[in-house]
Amino acid sequence: MPTHAEVRDDLTDILVAVVACDRADVVDEARLEALGVDSLALVEVADELGRRHDRYLVDDVVNHLVTVDDAVRAILEHDGSAGPRRVATSLHHPAPPVVDDEKSHRTSAMSKIAGFFIVLGAIIGVVLGLGGAALVAATGIGGVELPPIAAPSSEPTASASPSPSPEPTEEPEEEEEEDEEPTFEVGSNQVAPGQRFTLSGSFPELDDGEVLQVQVREDDGDWEDFPVTAITSSGGDYQTHVYTSRTGEREFRMLHRSSDTATDSEKVQIG
Rank of each mutant, 00 (worst) to 15 (best):
D208Y: 05
F197T: 15
S234C: 00
D222R: 10
T232S: 07
P193W: 03
T183A: 00
S202R: 15
V216G: 01
T157W: 03
G209H: 06
D208Q: 12
I149T: 14
L199W: 04
P168M: 06
L212F: 07
P182V: 06
E210W: 09
P148A: 06
G194W: 05
D237F: 09
L146G: 00
T169W: 06
P156F: 04
G201P: 02
S163V: 14
D179W: 01
D179I: 13
F197P: 02
E210A: 12
Q215G: 01
P166K: 02
G201S: 01
D222P: 00
E210F: 08
P147Q: 03
E178S: 07
A192T: 13
E185F: 07
D179R: 09
E175D: 13
S233I: 05
E218T: 15
T229V: 14
P156H: 03
E170M: 05
A158Y: 03
A230S: 14
A151I: 13
P204L: 08
G235R: 13
P156V: 09
T229W: 09
Q195R: 10
V211S: 08
E218W: 14
S161R: 08
E177G: 00
E181L: 08
E180M: 07
P168I: 06
D207V: 07
E181W: 09
P227Y: 13
E224V: 04
L206V: 03
P204R: 10
L212S: 04
G236W: 08
F197E: 06
T169E: 15
T198I: 11
S159M: 02
A192E: 15
S154V: 15
A192K: 14
E210I: 14
A150K: 02
F203P: 04
E174T: 15
Q215C: 01
E171R: 13
P162F: 09
E177F: 01
Q215V: 08
Q195L: 06
A230I: 09
W223V: 00
L199P: 01
P227F: 12
A158Q: 08
S154A: 13
L199D: 01
Q213D: 12
F226V: 08
P182C: 03
P148M: 00
A150D: 06
P166Q: 02
I231Y: 11
L212W: 04
P204A: 06
S233F: 13
Q190T: 15
T157F: 02
Q195P: 02
D179V: 15
E170F: 08
L206E: 05
A151Q: 12
W223F: 04
D208E: 14
S202C: 07
E174R: 13
D220T: 14
D179P: 00
T183W: 07
L206W: 05
A150V: 02
N189S: 15
P152W: 07
E185C: 00
V228S: 09
G221V: 10
T229S: 14
P166M: 01
D219T: 15
S161N: 08
G236S: 08
